[in-house]
Design a protein around this nucleic acid. Structure first.
Length: 382
DNA sequence: GACACCGGGGTCTGCCATTTCG
DNA sequence: CGAAATGGCAGACCCCGGTGTC
């Protein structure tokens, strides 16, 4: 008896929700739920395991969900007897998500409809501890529904936030972290701890004195680090250590600085980039020591793949810049080959002398560059 | 004003494999 | 056993501004 009345309540809640939110004919919904009741009463559990829940499918269609996509991604969800698709829709709508966004979220991560209203509210509030507005969260969900819904463990989420704070990350860091790499917060606490421990161990191994500070620094410089595997990060560091011949102190400084980003790269990709860099630079007459200095001064060079780096270097050389100048000011490599090409053309037009003036002009902001060119154009030749 | 130095900002999911759960 | 939860992977840079010094 209690179950029946509970079911009725559920139906009537679903009913009013969908009528309110999507203005559907009441009749349509009643029929939907009735057919579901008959189905599950007479057939019980057996059919459930290999038959899709018809009324659920209808609801998904009403919500505009791409059922084909949902089926392809998480087929089991469509076979469940009890789901909360309408509750989820109402919840998200209340947070400002549009019909399209809701449909897209469910299409891409169907399991979202298995979360209860209480659960959703609790998880949302935990995210709101980090974000300032609901709209920010809706944005992330639209971008990556999986990040929010993949785990149902709110306790774990809470512990993660506490853990990250305990590392010394402030609220601005947390905000950046959750915005940029929301998956971090769905990791198990254990997994996040493992990465932090790895970073601290690396720091100590390299003779660092403050492992906590090191870990915090790497995380805030590289917001993706916690969604990488420890294996990837460890292998990259080992490879860098053996191939670059840096001293421990140099490597430590590299990793805490701009070099933190290169830990993201897949092991093979980083290896390939290091090899290519060494080959290319020595073919241009650079010594081992030049290359080492180059990497220390501009670690992001290891981020650049052969197919980008080589043409970029060639472009600079062809434009009348020497390899020595590039070694002294590697930051020019920060800019796209296209951008460099355009600037070189402009500079050639006004007869810019790199030997006399250096090449820093190539790595100033667009605004400054344009101003400089204008000035040079209006000046008579000297 | 020109320049050097330094640091920061944006940006990253969607799929598959494996393990755990009920 | 199937579903849920969790872990891991591939992919691959560009740009801007504040501040200090001459």
């Amino acid at each position: 008896m209690a179950a029946v009345s509970g079911l009725r309540t559920l139906i009537s809640v679903r009913h009013s929700v969908i009528c309110q939110s999507f203005r559907l004919a009441p009749l349509q919904l009643t029929l939907t739920r009735l057919s579901w009741r008959q189905y599950s009463d007479s057939n019980g559990q057996q059919l459930q395991s290999n038959t899709e829940n018809k009324s659920l499918l209808e609801n998904l269609n009403l919500l505009g969900v791409d059922v084909k996509m949902a089926r392809q991604r998480q087929p089991g969800v469509l076979r469940k007897t009890f789901t909360n698709e309408l509750g989820l829709a109402k919840f998200l709508q209340g947070k400002g998500a549009s019909r399209n966004v809701i449909a897209s979220i469910v299409s891409r991560y169907p399991r979202a409809i298995t979360r209860s209203a209480d659960h959703l509210e609790q998880r949302w509030q935990l995210w709101r501890n980090v974000f300032n507005t609901d709209a920010e969260i809706v944005n992330i969900l639209d971008r990556s529904p999986e990040s929010f819904f993949r785990s149902s463990d709110n306790e774990n989420l809470k512990k993660n936030i506490d853990f990250l704070i305990s590392l010394g990350l402030n609220s601005k860091d947390l905000h950046r972290l959750l915005t940029t790499a929301p998956r971090t917060f769905s990791n198990s606490l254990e997994l996040n701890k493992q990465m932090v421990e790895l970073l601290e161990d690396i720091c100590l191994e390299l003779g660092g004195k403050n492992p906590e500070q090191f870990a915090k620094s790497v995380i805030s410089k590289n917001l993706y680090i916690l969604i990488r595997s420890t294996k990837r990060v460890k292998t990259n560091i080992d490879n860098l250590k053996t191939s670059l011949k840096l001293s421990d102190a140099e490597l430590l400084a590299l990793l805490q600085g701009h070099g933190a980003d290169i830990l993201d790269l897949s092991n093979e990709y980083l290896k390939k980039n290091v090899n290519n860099l060494e080959q290319k630079m020595s073919s241009l007459g650079c010594k081992k020591n030049d290359i080492k200095k180059l990497i220390i001064n501009y670690p992001m060079i290891l981020y650049i793949g052969p197919s980008t780096l080589n043409p970029k270097l060639d472009c600079l050389l062809k434009g009348g810049i020497t390899i020595k100048q590039i070694l002294e000011k590697p930051k020019v490599l920060d800019y796209s080959t296209q951008n460099i090409t355009e600037r070189l053309k402009e500079l050639q037009r006004v007869g810019y002398d790199f030997e006399k003036n250096g090449i820093h002009i190539l790595d100033t902001s667009k605004k400054r560059f344009v101003a400089k060119i204008e000035k040079l154009s209006s000046l008579p030749e000297d």
